[in-house]
Design a protein around this nucleic acid. Structure first.
Lengths: 214, 214, 214, 214
DNA sequence: AATGAATGAGCATTCATTCAT
DNA sequence: TATGAATGAATGCTCATTCAT
């Protein structure tokens, strides 16, 4: 029992990397078996089929961000001014910790989201909490009334995801090595200041520039 | 001769859609041949191999954004306040007009950018021009001194690309139908206000960016 | 011990059905194990191999007809006029009671009778007895001198076996539902009259063969 | 075109033998390919799938007996006394000429007639003609009134089919070599006399014994 | 320029059988 | 006696690519 469990988990771990690297169509069951040090048949015994395996990998991978999101439930009113920055940094860190995440998601998107329905509503509770904080942030003048919570979070997810997925190409395009840790840190800092300018030098005063401009 | 040219272009057009839809590994030479109404062997006569065909498709696809970027050369100092908005709207429109673009790029990214070197420096001239305008925008106080041009453009590209590529999944996550034209328009408006808040109050005085883009 | 015996018999019974339904090539050891509620390895412990199991099933199945044949030893001179009819009805009943018999035999025949040698001469004693009765029947004018006992019994076996094995197809061909009990009964009656016409007019005088069989 | 046709027919012919010998489950696509001297893929190009190939073989095989049956349309009133014998001999000959016929049909029966619906009503016209002759034969006293045409033909088909399919096993059981041409001929003769006794010595008189008995 | 025929190398999946416990 | 874990050898089927005409 324990031995089987171990084998199954070894296969799972190898499969995650395989699917991330090659995608569903490009992934090879034989390669997964070899890398996991097992016979192909074991894979079918444990996962039923290649697609069954992919679904399990995909669900688990998506579960990782749900888990990461849960840390946001600890945020309170005192975090409102930095809310956007916190979320951005959390997501940037998440992608750094789970390199395969964006790949699994991207492959899935390219396949026209065959399994997208599996994640419906999973983020609900966390988003509700963030939304409340964001609303209070709008009342207190930090976030523009005309910008919905959905757009706010969409932009943060966009930047972090795109950074993870396209930094190689962007390094070529912009002639900056975004794979370098230092460059990466600067990028995050600059982003925060671009999106939430009041954080910059006026940290103590907390005068939201949105209002100051008017 | 002309007939051969036509045949080749028909194949090319079909191949672009095929690679966009299925990716390199999932694309089928036989399917391309059938859809293009030719014999498989023609494809090999014209493109040498499946990979040769992909490279040509990829290069051409990347050329499209270079072309689109060229419209930015027409921008002048009077566009500086709306610079970010103009670029964002241009990219959003571009993705709408070329649905296959993000897919071809994404497939390529997932394959660890085997052909990324082919595009080195292609964007140079346009970026130089935009950079000059951005610098002047920083001097005039529109853009934060602490935010580099690279970060500025990175964020704009991120949002437009991610919107195109992940709007299906994000529709599920955020319970908003981003495939709907109206929702899409609101998203762009809100993004502009989130990223460039000073545009909000001055809407009436300046030419609306949608028109400026024309 | 008793438990093992039970297990073995459960496997055997399931295997018989499996081989009957799917044949040797189509039978699945795993399916037999599941249906018998045992581990596959048990099957190998008890039967050695898939083929070993088939041989046992085949031998046992063939034994059933030998057993059934033994009832013919009770026939005497008074049964001579109805001899053919009695045998026919007995075989028809046998096939009804042992649905899997013809299938197991047919699978075996199709495999070019790999195990046919196992049954050599098994029917000897019973056939000898029937043959004596048939000879006396010939002398008494019931059965044609020119028709050997072998042909006589061959025809009876043919009809009963073919009815069991091909009634589904024949139902389509002849547009008659031979799976229906009533149609089946008529068929047997008509057969008797076709093969042994003298029985027709004398029905009232002799004991009806259905009862004689008891 | 012609070359492809040849190849396809070579595959078809090999496949017929393969399916006859091993049945659907036991047949091997690779073996068919090797024996036909082609690449496996050709089989899929021409027949789509293993099952597609089986269906084509099965339909063609069943078509053979339909074709053979057509010779019965030439029978007229003068053939009525010998009708049963003619049909029996025709079927015996058919099985001798098409050794694979009974096997293909038997495999199909064992698979519970998955494709039986394909042959519905195919025999209609020929049977209608035979039925008319049989009716007139009943009127003229050759065939018993109480025996339906369906039973009559069923018995003839049974004997010929069973002889073809079980003569190997029956040779063991009855200790007679039914594969020997001479034994086979005797069997047919004896059968005719058993089923249609008036044919025997009284050929010229044509007094049906059925009536003589009463 | 164009096509139908042909192939080799794979690929997902299955299955009888064995092993360790 | 019994089981879960493991394997090697298929097996049906696919696909990029080449060849002959």
């Amino acid at each position: 029992m324990t031995k089987g469990r171990q084998t199954k988990e070894r296969i799972f771990s190898v499969a995650t990397k395989e699917f991330a690297q090659y995608g569903y169509a490009g992934a090879r069951v034989a390669r997964i078996a070899t890398k996991a040090g097992v016979n192909k048949e074991r894979i079918y015994a444990y996962f039923g089929s290649k697609e069954g395996m992919f679904v399990k990998v995909w669900k688990h991978t998506y579960g990782l961000i749900i888990e990461a999101d849960e840390s946001f439930l600890a945020l309170g009113d005192e975090d409102i001014p930095r809310l956007g920055e916190i979320v951005l940094r959390r997501y940037m860190t998440f992608h750094e910790e789970h390199e395969e995440f964006w790949k699994i998601l991207a492959w899935e998107n390219l396949q026209n989201g065959k399994h997208a329905h599996l994640i419906r509503g999973l983020k609900g509770p966390v988003h509700d909490h963030l939304k409340q904080l964001y609303y209070r942030g709008q009342e207190r003048g930090f976030y523009a009334e005309s910008v919905s919570f959905e757009t706010f979070i969409f932009v943060l997810i966009s930047v972090s995801f795109f950074f993870a997925s396209n930094r190689a190409t962007m390094s070529e395009t912009l002639q900056r090595d975004y794979l370098d840790a230092h460059v990466r840190r600067s990028f995050i800092d600059e982003c925060s200041q671009m999106l939430f300018p009041w954080l910059a030098g006026v940290k103590r005063e907390v005068t939201p520039p949105v209002q100051a401009e008017r």
